[in-house]
Structures are given as C-alpha cells and as structure tokens.
Design a protein around this nucleic acid. Structure first.
Lengths: 228, 228
DNA sequence: ATAAAGGTTCGGCTAAGATCGAACTATGTA
DNA sequence: TACATAGTTCGATCTTAGCCGAACCTTTAT
C-alpha cells in the first residue's frame, strides 16, 4: 500500500554532518571526486564511499565514471533547491554552524560559504550593493530583493545566474557572517558572483579549504568593478 | 566561529518517522494536541512529548497552551514550504511510504494524504480536472499547471488557497496514489479543495485514521460541483 | 476532595548506524 | 613489471537516540 511520498529517508540522509557537508560542497554545481568529498567532510574515504553510495541510491546525487575517477554531482536542481530551502529555515531558526578552528586571516578575508562569497570581502560587497540600492533588505531581514537598477547592474557585467525556469531558488538571499549583524549575499546571484570572480581569474579556491584567494590584481579589479 | 546556517539538525529532526508524521499532520495548518499527534505517529505520549520538545526547541513548531491542552502547529510557512519541497524530491526519487495495513475499503475510497484528498475520489477528481483542461500535466509528470480556465473555475467556487505572498508553495502538484500512474492533486489548491469539502460539510475526518468520510449527500454534491 | 485526563520527566533497554582499520579491485604511471 | 592512486567491501567497535514503563505535575470534571 503506497500513500504519498516518504520524506523520512531523504531528510535522514541530509541530517548527518558528513553527508550534509558533501552535499553542500556539491551545491556549486561542480562535480567532485570521492576523495575530495571525503576531505570536505573530514572523514576517511571508506566512510565517504559508504555515504556516497547511500546518497546515490536515494537519487540525491549521480555519478559519472571517468578513468579511475568517479565524479559525483547533485542529481538535479530539485535537490539544490531543497538544500537552499533548508538553509533558509536553518538561518531563520538561528541554527548556525559552529566550526572550532584557527582564526585564519585568509579565511576571515574571503572564503566560500556553500556556493557564494563570505568573509570581509563578501560583507564589503554586500554593504556596497545595499548602499547603492542595488539590493533591498526588508526590515525584518527576512527577504532580500534585487532592485531593477540592481538587475541592470548585473546584466551590464554579464553576471546572470543560470537557473532553469522551474527553479525556485531565490535570486538573492542574505546569509549571516561570523560577526552577527553582518550579512553577505547568498542565493542565485550570490553564486553567480563568486563564479564571476573565478572565471575572471580574480581569485581561486585553495585546495582542501574554504579559502578564496584573490590575487593583488584580482582584488583591485573586484573592488573597481563591483564595490565602486 | 560561525559559518553559515547549519542544515544538519533541521534535517535530522525531519528524518525520523515519528517526527515526520507529526509534522506532516500539522501541514493542514490545524493546531493539534500532543495526544492527537502521538496517535498520528503511533507512539506513546511520553515519546511524542519528547519529540515535540525537540521540534519546538529547533523552532520548527510553536505551542499555545489553553487550559490543560497544548496546541502545536508549524512555526511558519517556511517550514511548510520545506516539507512540501521535501515531498517533491521524495516523489521524484521514487521514495514512497509503504504502509502495511488492512485494505480498508473506506481508506481506498477517500483519505487524507498529508493535507489533501487521496483515494478513488481524489483520483477521480484529478482525472476530471485534467480532462476539462483545468489543470495541465507536463509530459514528464514533473510539473502541474493550473490553467486560466482552471483558476476561473476555482474562483467561481470560492476555492482559493490562502497563502502569504512570500510562500513558495506550488499551487498545484501531483501526488502518486497507491496504484502507480494514478495521480491526485496536491499543492496549495489540493489543500484548499479538501478544506472546501470539510467546510461545506460534505465530509469529515474520522478520528485517529486517515479516512475521509463523505456523507451520501456530500458525495453527490462533491460530484455535481467538482467532477462535472 | 477525589478522580480523571493531558503532558512531562526520568531511567534503562535496545537498535541503528557512523566510523575506521584492513584487505581488496581497478586504473593509470614509471 | 612494479608501484602508486582512486575507490569499494567487510568486520568490529562504539556512540547516539528512539522507545516505553513508571512516577510525577497540572488542570478540569464530579
């Protein structure tokens, strides 16, 4: 007797720190190998392998074999949307990740938060966008709107999120940074902006960490083009 | 060190059968007591009490005390949206609830599936709506659209989902019934339709089960008004 | 005042599952 | 061929958390 979709196994899969880390690492859309994902989740590759098999069996991720590598990615945009929705609820209920670690100056400056830019540069960018009224934050911080001039601004720079029409991912979302009350930009445009930084070669990700490393020239161009 | 919202505890809470049952029972928007929720999840009230405390602490539900009763409901529309999104992913990945139980004729005929109508009457309604092109199902079953004539039809009957503007709950969704390939209507309009049946006194829910019991007259009116 | 019903707290039992070491397969490289 | 690297499978360990019985608190009914 079947009666409706069963949300339990799906939620249970995401409700594990290691698997959630791997899934969110995949939110950038990039396909990653099992070893990379193991490092991302701070577990051994055996454990990762087991988790990935479960995620695959549940249809949350898909795998493509290439030589001796196996590249994993999210199965579809639905799954990314689900993760995004979860982040939204977690954000509003005040549940945040607490990561005990060295107060790395690089991490403070610029790092990846899921698939968008966080750290001082992320906050700086957010403040500037808000000041120029390219984005509009509701009074209760619940919603972030892209204004029409904001849309023009991004279009002019050819920064456009590539979303299927069916996607329900919000274009802009706020995401709270370490120091409470400092926001940075999440959502589809947040992801597109970080992608822009990578494709313009302003910055690159440091292997095995969340650090986003801007070159001297990249940082200057980032500021002149985006911060104003 | 804070770094982004933590989706793990939220997902883990939903990833338990008992808690998920209680949460989905609350999706109707109705506030329920701890004892009712315990029955819904087939657990003792002690266990339910523990679960409800956790859900409350996580901000997924809120409680209102009234005399010796404590009424629980979902904290906000975000949570309902999250559950709906989860249902969507579960639906597409083919994960369904398998409920071993008696092949109750009443259950087969009409029952609640989350917050909408399932069973033969649900399927019948869906087929009729589709035949009259009031709803439009995409070829791959992925999306269900309400047509403009469909909207007019529902408006004429004063069946309108009451959703806040911020809600991202889809107006119409398909939900698979026991016998595969038979759909019924889920989503905001699915919920509104069931609510309509209750408020018109066509049917009532049978305490402690998923059965929706239509009166003779109720069923006739249901057919003449909705099925055509 | 006594009883009954709605809820919560506590303690112990139990099962599920996350983890890793070790051994194994398969692909690519020197 | 030998060796290194990517990944999986198996078995054992150990922690987590769901569950219920029993006792308790609180509000309503008799």
């Amino acid at each position: 007797m079947y009666d409706g979709p069963n949300i339990v196994p799906i939620a249970a899969l995401i409700g594990d720190q290691a698997r959630a880390s791997m899934l969110t690492a995949l939110m950038s859309g990039e396909a990653l190998t099992a070893t990379e994902l193991a490092a991302e989740a701070n577990i051994t590759k055996q454990t990762a392998s087991g988790h990935l098999a479960k995620l695959r069996e549940a249809g949350l991720i898909v795998v493509a074999s290439q030589g001796r590598h196996r590249y994993f990615r999210l199965a579809n945009k639905d799954v990314a949307d689900l993760l995004e929705t979860l982040m939204g609820v977690a954000e509003r209920t005040g549940s945040r990740r607490v990561i005990p670690g060295p107060k790395d100056a690089q991490l403070r400056k610029a790092r990846v938060c899921y698939d968008h830019l966080a750290g001082e540069m992320g906050v700086e960018l957010f403040d500037s966008l808000q000041k120029r009224q390219l984005i509009l934050l509701a009074k209760d911080d619940s919603e972030l709107q892209l204004t029409s001039s904001g849309r023009k601004f991004f279009n002019g720079l050819e920064i456009t999120p590539n979303l299927p029409a069916s996607s329900r991912r919000p274009l802009c979302r706020v995401c709270l940074d370490w120091s409470v009350r400092r926001h940075h930009l999440a959502g589809a445009y947040g992801a597109a902006l970080l992608e822009h930084c990578f494709s313009k070669k302003w910055a690159k990700r440091v292997e095995g960490s969340r650090v986003v490393q801007f070159s001297k020239r990249g940082e200057l161009q980032f500021r002149s083009e985006l911060i104003n």
